[in-house]
Design a protein around this nucleic acid. Structure first.
Lengths: 191, 191
DNA sequence: TCCTATTAGTATTGAGTCGATACCATTAGG
DNA sequence: CCTAATGGTATCGACTCAATACTAATAGGA
């Protein structure tokens, strides 16, 4: 006996359908869905996490695929690669001015606008529920959460003024603006 | 000046990431994501809506693509096609016993299980918010909602006992069990 | 200091999606 | 009847993505 159309099944179906809709919508401005995701990631990730390897883990793809997409974005002049001096295997990625500008026409913005009209309470419920769903599913696959720096167990709020924050894992000072960036190494604080 | 990381942006990013995760997870049992969606659709759709054309509209793809996927499913013995006698252009689709059985191993079930552990209130908030998001985005693209029969403006609850329901659009009687099925023609009742 | 294992990234190949187009058969509407 | 319009199929090409094999740089021992 199956439980047809349980609330949970319905929610799962909704998420899958919306995901499909977002993905077909993301064929825009000459870019493909994965390329938009890469642009968004590079816009939100902190400086330690703007590498092909981190992006690969974020997207859950293989590195070959990601390398290809990054080449396309570089050829379009949206992303720059810079060899890391401390580790010359790795390349530091960043958005060009053109890449930044293109994000203003991100096809996801229409959806963001719709979500923006929700009241605060549904917004918070959605955020909490979707976050716990994502974290749980990622955890089951042994993948990192890519949460915000400020929610990390290595995040030290040491100097309220001056040099406000510090990463205890990488041993680096963090600017105020970096606290909200997403990080490859992020390990969520225990409650 | 962009509004980085607004709550709405965060929610949109979560949905897109979960969508991507579900899609990579749906490479299972020798099927592909779109094929799983087709199986689920055929399991939930009412008898008027189990056609390639309706599935095409549901998925938002082109009919060629859907035809191909259905051929694959038919070749695997998961789906049956039957020519409609009233309109011999169209074919009626249905799951075979093997197809039904395979749905028990649907990779989406893991996610359903996680969602099932939410409390009732977050579940209802999620449902409402995601439904309105989906409806709004579908509407903007001129696509049908594919809602449940019972929420349709053509749904008549005429005979509480006996032959309980009736579709005023198609002029057909509806069994009790069909009221919760999703329908191609569904047009949501105004509030 | 080697020597090996690991890691970052690239290149290539092949299966498969998806959109576009063209096409056939059936039905609907003047 | 004749001409759309509709349901479905077949084929082609661009592209994704996984898999594999590869190069270069680094890390960690003995």
């Amino acid at each position: 006996m199956e439980m047809k159309n349980s609330p949970a099944q319905h929610i799962a179906a909704l998420i899958e359908r919306i995901g499909r809709l977002l993905s077909t919508e993301a064929h825009a401005e000459g870019l493909l869905p994965v390329q938009w995701e890469a642009l968004r990631y590079l816009d939100k990730a902190n400086r330690f996490s703007r590498t092909a390897a981190a992006l690969t883990a974020y997207l859950g793809l293989t590195k070959g695929t990601v390398s290809q997409s990054l080449n396309t974005l570089e050829a379009k002049g949206l992303v720059k690669k810079l060899v890391n001096r401390k580790d010359r295997r790795s390349k530091h990625l960043s958005l060009t001015a053109k890449g930044q500008k293109l994000l203003l026409r991100d096809p996801l913005n229409v959806t963001v606008a719709v979500l923006d009209e929700l009241e605060g309470v549904p917004q918070r419920t959605l955020t909490t529920a979707l976050e716990s769903l994502l974290t749980s599913r990622l955890g089951a696959q042994g993948r990192q959460p890519f949460g915000q720096c400020r929610d990390c167990c290595y995040f030290a709020n040491r100097h309220p003024k001056g040099n406000p924050h510090y990463c205890q894992l990488l041993g680096e000072k963090l600017a105020e603006s970096e606290a909200a960036a997403i990080c490859f190494e992020q390990t969520t604080k225990r409650a």
